[in-house]
């Protein structure tokens, strides 16, 4: 029924790859190019156009700072700068050196009335201030490290 609209939509293929692997590895794109018989340049063109696609592996937790109007007016630009400093992310990168956090700017989440909003993993932090973010991130970091330690003690390194 869905016919032509459904068949081989490049964007949806890329979304599936990213969902499985967390990012778009070069090899997968080459394979997709072969399977769909469309030039790699075209696939790469689409992959770089949309915000959703990333070509580098992400950190364990993604922190997205909303850059919508309401959030900007209520201070998310400062929150972003704070997070960059706090996580120690270098100017040309988006992931912290320990590979735990990647920081990105997001477009409006549509929760403008809770502005400013920062999303840590799946958790939305409304009315965010640097102090609260600091607390929330420390909690998340601790739980990741604890998990890793537990796994490390259980079955060695993966």
């Amino acid at each position: 029924m869905s016919g032509k609209i459904c068949s081989g939509n490049l964007i949806e293929s890329l979304q599936r790859i990213q969902e499985k692997q967390g990012f778009l590895p070069r090899d997968s794109l080459i394979k997709l190019s072969r399977d769909t018989r469309s030039p790699l340049s075209r696939i790469f063109g689409v992959a770089t156009f949309y915000h959703q696609f990333r070509l580098e592996p992400p950190g364990k937790v993604t922190i997205a700072v909303c850059m919508g109007t309401a959030c900007h007016l209520r201070g998310n630009a400062e929150n972003y700068e704070f997070l960059r400093r706090f996580l120690g992310i270098r100017p040309d990168r988006s992931t912290s050196d320990d590979g735990l956090f990647s920081l990105e700017k997001a477009r409006c989440f549509g929760c403008c009335s809770l502005a400013p909003v920062v999303k840590i993993g799946d958790m939305l932090v409304g009315k965010a201030t640097p102090r609260e973010l600091q607390k929330a991130i420390s909690r998340v970091r601790e739980s990741i490290l604890r998990e890793e330690a537990a796994r490390g003690a259980g079955g060695g390194k993966t």
């Binding site: 609209i5 964007i11 949309y50 915000h51 477009r107």
Partner: peptide
């Protein structure tokens, strides 16, 4: 028939 397609993010 209708189908839902998710954008990949571009204003």
């Amino acid at each position: 028939d209708v189908r839902v397609m998710r954008s990949a993010g571009a204003f």
